[in-house]
Amino acid sequence: MVMSASGTDVVHSLYVNHHAWLHGWLRRKLGCSFEAADLAHDTYVRLIASRRLPQPEESRAYLMQIARGLVVDLYRRRQIEAAFRDSLALMPEDLWPSAEQQAIVIETLAEIDAALASLPPKVRETFLLSRFDGLTYSDIAVKLNVSVASVRKYMLKAALACFSTFAG
């Protein structure tokens, strides 16, 4: 169902009827009432932003689907933050970026991660093998059993996905 003028009434009804259940489900999943409250709120924000509303009999399943995606995003972001902290630990503290710069780097890394996650597996793997493992296009072609031309095409697609994240 696409959201219409009466959509605000439907969203209000969904919130009243399912928010406590959703918060409880998220609290059990995350082990933290505060994070559960944030993600429950974000679930409704995503619902409204999508302008699509579930049929009444699909309400909980639809809300849970959105919330699961947010939980995955949260865990992925935690992994990115941990990896960034680990890399900082290898540097002298006086060379660390400011807290604001760190937040910007983490946000940028999360956006790049989301862009790469949206790509087909071979495209994502090609990019990672090239940028992080330092493999040549020929090595990647052999490893993935594709042509060098395909590797070039995959790299272009991955680069465009990363660049489009920041354009606009």
Results as ranks from 00 to 15, higher is better:
Leu26Val: 02
Leu14Cys: 08
Ala89Glu: 05
Ala36Thr: 08
Arg78Thr: 05
Pro121Cys: 00
Arg78Gln: 15
Arg77Pro: 03
Ala36Ile: 06
Ser150Asp: 14
Trp96Cys: 00
Cys32Thr: 03
Ala83Tyr: 01
Arg46Asn: 05
Val123Ala: 06
Val45Asn: 02
Ala67His: 06
Thr108His: 15
Tyr15Met: 11
Ala115Pro: 05
Glu57Asn: 07
Tyr44Ile: 15
Glu81Thr: 03
Ala110Asp: 08
His41Ile: 03
Leu135Ala: 04
Met155Ile: 14
Gln102Asn: 11
Leu74Lys: 11
Leu53Thr: 11
Ile80Asn: 10
Val16His: 09
Thr126Arg: 05
Gly168Met: 04
Ser147Thr: 14
Ala5His: 14
Ala115His: 08
Pro97Ser: 08
Glu57His: 13
Asn145Trp: 07
Val72Thr: 14
Arg52Trp: 09
Phe84Gln: 01
Phe34Arg: 02
Ala141Met: 10
Met91Tyr: 01
Val105Ala: 08
Gln101Ala: 11
Asp86Glu: 05
Ala37Ser: 07
His18Val: 05
Ser87Tyr: 06
His41Ser: 09
Ser130Met: 02
Leu116Ile: 08
Leu95Ile: 05
Gly69Thr: 04
Asp139Glu: 15
Ser4Cys: 04
Pro120Cys: 06
Ser147Val: 04
Leu160Ser: 02
Tyr75Arg: 13
Ser87Glu: 13
Ala167Glu: 14
Gln79His: 13
Ser13Tyr: 02
Leu22Glu: 05
Leu119Cys: 12
Phe163Tyr: 15
Gly134Leu: 01
Tyr137His: 11
Ile48Glu: 03
Ser59Glu: 10
Ala115Glu: 05
Arg51Pro: 13
Phe163Glu: 15
Glu125His: 07
His12Ser: 14
Glu125Asp: 11
Ser130Cys: 02
Pro92Cys: 04
Arg78Ala: 14
Gly168Glu: 07
Arg78Pro: 01
Leu30Met: 06
Ala103Gln: 01
Asp73Thr: 02
Ile48Tyr: 07
Arg124Trp: 00
Trp25Thr: 07
Pro120Gly: 13
Phe163Arg: 08
Trp21Phe: 15
Tyr15Glu: 06
Ser130Arg: 10
Val16Leu: 06
Arg52Ala: 12
Met3Arg: 10
Gly7Pro: 01
Thr108Arg: 15
Ala89Gln: 03
Thr136Phe: 08
Asp113Glu: 02
Arg77Ala: 05
Phe132Gln: 13
Met3Thr: 12
Asp94Pro: 00
Thr126Trp: 11
Ala141Lys: 10
Ala159Gly: 14
Val16Ala: 06
Ala103Gly: 03
Leu116Arg: 02
Ala117His: 04
Glu57Gln: 14
Arg77Gly: 03
Ile48Met: 08
His19Pro: 04
Leu128Thr: 01
Asn145Met: 09
Ala36Trp: 14
Leu14Ala: 10
Gly7Lys: 02
Tyr44Gln: 12
Leu53Asn: 13
His12Leu: 11
Asp113Ile: 01
